[in-house]
Computed example of a mutant assay.
Amino acid sequence: MRDNLAIHIEGVVQRRDRFKLGPLSLQVPQGCVTAIVGPNGSGKSSTFKLLLGLSKPDEGYLTMLGQRVDASDDAVLKRRIGYLSEEPFHQEDGMRGRQKADFVRQWYPDWNEILFNKLLSVFEVDPSLKLRRMSKGMRRKFELALIMAHEPELLLLDEPSSGLDPLAWKAMIDVFHRYMEPGTRTIVMATHIVEEVRRLADYIVFMHAGRVLGMYEKDELFSSWSRFFVETGSGLTAASGCAAAASEIPGGCQAEDAGGGVISLSTARPMEAERWLTEQGWTIRARRPMELDDIMEALIERDCREKRVPQGAGSPHRSGAG
């Protein structure tokens, strides 16, 4: 990971009546695309609000582009950032697109009108329409053009492809690739679209229940995580085989009965796991790479198990050593 950080979150905790965010620590490298993935309610949008200063942490600190987020004068910092919220601001529904653009540009000395109009053309957006008259996808594209027109150093994108049709999605991906060409810009996006992560991300951050489960280099993540389908032999039942695998297989996260005397095992260390299975005399029927949602499920299950089981205690059914 690079020395220059676009975002540094250290020891952040935010307490609400029914939700606790953190302790949260995260370092996001500059010049890369980082995707934050996790189920609804995992804390992705709350983290963005903290980064933007829209809410305050109870503990810890955050920096963006080398500046503390809680600085008293953050106008200069915010000019270096473009933020796309998950939902539009309905207070603006009565404005026409061009009116909103005229209002927004006054806050950005580096506003690029040529770029803005080019993006409107690429996205096929009519800025003369009132915002409430735009379809969800068109408004999304308009907002994307708006936040990119001042050529920010950092884009914070909360579900950027929400409402986009396949053609608009491809146009958005191309725009983001071009945005990253200088090599010094950064995108941090919360998304649940697997193909979006594959096409754009350099790093993947998994979040669950207000905490970071891990940050991984994308290619390494997809090349390492595997699911084995094995027969235990040795007279072991599926239940006892799952228990044995769960407690001992290297890198294991999940072990479950796949039916027909076959056990399904997920692991983040497949080479070591394969050697272990061979040493046990178990028969490997298949090995398959795991998709992003499968990896996330395995990490969440391991996280839930570790919160549930005291250190050193035995592992429950469907769990694995991590």
Rank of each mutant, 00 (worst) to 15 (best):
K100G: 10
R139C: 02
F229K: 05
V197N: 04
G82W: 03
Q106Y: 10
W225Y: 13
Q99S: 12
N40T: 11
N117D: 11
M138C: 08
F142Q: 09
M1F: 07
S128D: 15
A145C: 07
W276Q: 09
L265E: 03
D202Q: 05
M148A: 03
G259I: 02
G241Y: 00
H208W: 11
F229N: 04
Q14R: 15
E195C: 11
V197D: 07
S247P: 02
N117E: 10
Y203R: 04
P29G: 12
G38H: 05
F229W: 05
G281S: 05
G281F: 03
G183E: 10
D219K: 07
V122Q: 03
R318I: 03
S42H: 04
K118W: 09
K170C: 11
V188P: 06
R105Q: 14
I81V: 14
P270D: 12
R68S: 15
I263V: 07
G320C: 07
P88S: 06
D165A: 10
K49M: 13
L129M: 14
K141T: 08
G233R: 02
P152L: 03
Q91F: 15
E279S: 12
L167S: 14
L221M: 07
Y203N: 06
A321T: 09
A75Y: 09
V69A: 01
V309N: 12
R132E: 14
L292A: 08
R68N: 15
E181G: 03
L292K: 02
V194E: 15
L24P: 01
E151N: 14
E87F: 13
L277A: 05
G241A: 06
V194K: 07
H317R: 15
I204S: 00
F176I: 11
I249D: 03
L65A: 10
E92S: 11
